[in-house]
Amino acid sequence: MFLINCPYCGERDQSEFSAGGEAHIVRPKQPTELSDDQWAEYLFMRKNIKGVQFERWNHAHGCRKWFNMVRDTSNDKIHAVYKIGEKPPIN
């Protein structure tokens, strides 16, 4: 349990948010040309990183907006929060 600094609303309790999983997974531009392996990669395979991870969150019980977050999954420490479409502030 931790606090999340929503880029639109400010700091709120994590229980107000819902997690949307790994960020920056781009939807295939030409889905009809994808092989089964590529579909599996897009739909199911995840880095599931232990360490610094880029992920999507939604302020479900607040402004209901999506945004991105950089969080260390080994200690839940949040390094950065940034809006959808923005470049990650850290690499």
Binding site: G21, A40, E41, F44, M45, R46, K47, N48, I49, K50, T73
Partner: peptide, 18 residues
């Protein structure tokens, strides 16, 4: 829970979330 960590050592991605 650490399966993905081991898989990462051989550049394998698994359909898992921990």
């Amino acid at each position: 829970g650490h399966s993905s960590v081991i898989a990462c050592m051989v550049d394998l991605k698994l359909p898992l979330e921990s």
